[in-house]
Simulated scan of single mutants.
Amino acid sequence: MLPVDEQMRVITSGAAQIVPETDLRKKLERGVPLNIKLGVDPTSPDLHLGHAVPLRKMRQFQDLGHKVTLIIGNGTAMIGDPSGKNTTRPQLTQEEVEANAATYVSQAMKILDPEKTTIVHNGDWILSLDLKGL
């Protein structure tokens, strides 16, 4: 791994602010790869331009030797907004979510290094919870 100052230069490039920057520096000084995570809910077939910013930053972390985890929010996408108040978060079928998730992964891997990316699905733990009464 690069020296901490060089990693900080790369990580802070293009960032308006790192909160708190001193804590990030301390974690880097440990010399242990960090695990950087991003969660995306597959509520539509495509990632959008706004996803490119954190994905590109995650790629920088990968290139610096850190671990990256992409969390596919299949559980939260299927839950949607059960109240029906938020029309941008409709409840989706498992088939719709799986199809969207597949395109999300394919698109994200155009930025992330597939060999260095861990992919998990939050449905593996969320769907076993009884959230209907909440």
Rank of each mutant, 00 (worst) to 15 (best):
K67A: 12
T118C: 12
P3V: 10
I126P: 02
P54H: 12
E29I: 06
K57D: 01
P90F: 06
M109F: 15
K110Q: 15
G14M: 11
M109Q: 14
Q7W: 05
L47E: 01
G14K: 14
E98F: 09
L2A: 14
L134F: 00
R89Q: 10
V105M: 07
I72F: 01
H121M: 14
S106E: 15
T76K: 04
L112K: 08
V4Q: 01
V40R: 03
G73T: 01
Q17G: 00
I11G: 04
S128F: 06
A99H: 11
S83M: 11
K132D: 09
L129S: 03
R30Q: 13
G73C: 06
G73E: 00
P42A: 03
R89F: 07
Q62D: 07
N122A: 03
L131Y: 01
R9M: 09
G80F: 02
V105P: 00
L47M: 12
A77S: 13
L70Q: 03
T87Y: 09
A77M: 06
P45R: 11
P20L: 15
P42D: 05
T117L: 05
I111T: 10
K116L: 09
Y104I: 00
D113E: 11
L134A: 00
T76R: 05
T118F: 13
Q91P: 08
G133P: 00
L92H: 04
G65N: 11
D63Q: 15
Q60S: 09
S44P: 00
P42V: 01
T22R: 12
T43Y: 04
K85N: 12
Q60E: 12
R56H: 07
Q94D: 07
L131A: 04
V40S: 03
A52Y: 11
P20I: 07
H51T: 01
T43I: 05
L28I: 01
L47Y: 02
L24R: 14
D63R: 15
E95Q: 14
W125V: 05
S13V: 08
M109H: 15
T103C: 07
L47I: 14
I119P: 01
T103D: 13
G65V: 04
E95V: 10
I119L: 11
R25P: 02
K110I: 01
K67G: 03
D113K: 14
K57I: 02
S106N: 13
L2G: 02
G65W: 08
I18D: 09
A77L: 02
R30E: 14
